[in-house]
Design a protein around this nucleic acid. Structure first.
Length: 109
DNA sequence: GCATTGACAAGTG
DNA sequence: GCACTTGCCAATG
């Protein structure tokens, strides 16, 4: 695979520090494809097949909701992982999303 | 090659 | 704040 859009997404997600989360829109924007936020989601689907696997559990939608937790091998583990990293998750949603939100642009700089 | 679907986002009512 | 609609692009049948 050449430098595809997915590779870029994987790089960003892998750069997400522990105890932090980001949104699809933020990643898409960082890649200059804010309109193609959906592609980020597709990339996440392939993340399970990609190597190394990316911490997709740190990627949530613009509302901080764990939309794709059911796509994990263990959806329940996703929330556990986030809580383990210090992220408060309530009702499949990141509580202090604003505080744990991590902007990929900060790392791309 | 066309139609449908999808881990989304932003705008409108 | 929630529900509905539009845009955007790729994968699948």
């Amino acid at each position: 695979m050449d430098t595809n859009f997915y590779e870029q997404v994987y790089e960003i997600v892998r750069l997400i520090p522990k105890g932090r989360v980001t949104s699809y829109g933020a990643i898409a924007k960082s890649l200059g494809a804010a309109k193609s936020s959906r592609m980020v989601g597709h990339a996440m689907l392939y993340s399970g097949l990609s190597h190394p696997k990316v911490p997709a559990h740190r990627v949530v939608n613009s509302s901080g909701l764990l939309t794709g937790k059911f796509h994990f091998e263990d959806p329940n583990a996703m929330q556990e992982l986030l809580e383990k990293e210090g992220i408060e998750v309530k009702n499949d949603k990141v509580v202090n999303f604003k505080k744990v939100f991590w902007d990929p642009l900060e790392e791309i700089i």
